[in-house]
Design a protein around this nucleic acid. Structure first.
Length: 211
DNA sequence: CACCAGGCAAGTA
DNA sequence: TACTTGCATGGT
């Protein structure tokens, strides 16, 4: 299985090259973007983040100081804006109250960071792993809808497989390597967007044809 | 027009 | 436990 995962990785890397993820400039921006992109197109998230930058609110204190209704209006383009505004403020309040700042929050082992993230409203398994890997640089594999669709379609996991099961397959089958996990998930999303969308899949042109 | 996007949590039986 | 529903904008 591990060689199969490596083979797919090599094929994707050859086809697409490095993806330079996460598309955010700072760990804090990655943190916020991970919540804003839930079930939402990244282009919409970019508008929301641009609004936060323009309002000079893209920081722990900046977000905490905003009225929730105002924050909701700023992140409106990213959808579910009322929910996300409340959940972002819950997240940043937790970080401030419990750890003081982002560096201190991230300065703990992978499992305890994941568990703290998962205990917060609005942070599920994918968002927790995205933050741990792409903002904190921890060795954890991110599973998303594309991962499930692509790898079940290629019979490497069951259609009914859950998040944990899929994550375990990757982490058991690959060396514990942050740059590898980073690039692999990014390549899966790249492949998904171009060849494995829910509505218009282009399986004929897919780089994984024949693997 | 209908459907979907790098989810998650609360409600129902 | 196992489904279902609400949340919401912007692109195809």
């Amino acid at each position: 299985m591990s060689s199969r995962l490596q083979e797919i990785y090599d094929t994707l890397y050859t086809a697409f090259g490095p993806q330079h993820w996460w598309p955010g400039e700072t760990p804090f921006e990655v943190l916020i973007g991970a919540v804003l992109t839930q079930n939402t197109a990244w282009t919409n998230v970019e508008r929301a983040i641009a609004n936060l930058k323009a309002a000079d609110a893209l920081s722990l204190d900046g977000l905490a100081a905003l009225d929730t209704v105002i924050l909701a209006e700023l992140i409106r383009p990213s959808g579910y804006y009322n929910q996300k505004a409340a959940r972002l403020q819950g997240l940043i309040r937790y970080i401030t109250d419990t750890h003081g700042d982002l560096d201190a929050f991230f300065d703990q082992d992978t499992e305890s960071l994941r568990e703290e993230l998962l205990s917060l409203k609005g942070i599920g398994p994918e968002t927790a792993d995205s933050i741990a890997l792409y903002a904190a640089g921890k060795p954890t594999f991110v599973v998303d809808a594309y991962t499930h669709r692509i790898f079940s379609r290629h019979n490497l996991i069951a259609e009914e497989a859950g998040y944990h099961e899929i994550r375990e397959m990757f982490m058991d089958g690959l060396p514990e390597d942050v740059p590898l996990y980073n690039e692999y998930h990014a390549l899966i999303v790249r492949l998904g967007k171009e060849y494995c969308k829910k509505s218009k899949p282009r399986c004929e042109q897919c780089p994984l044809q024949g693997i």
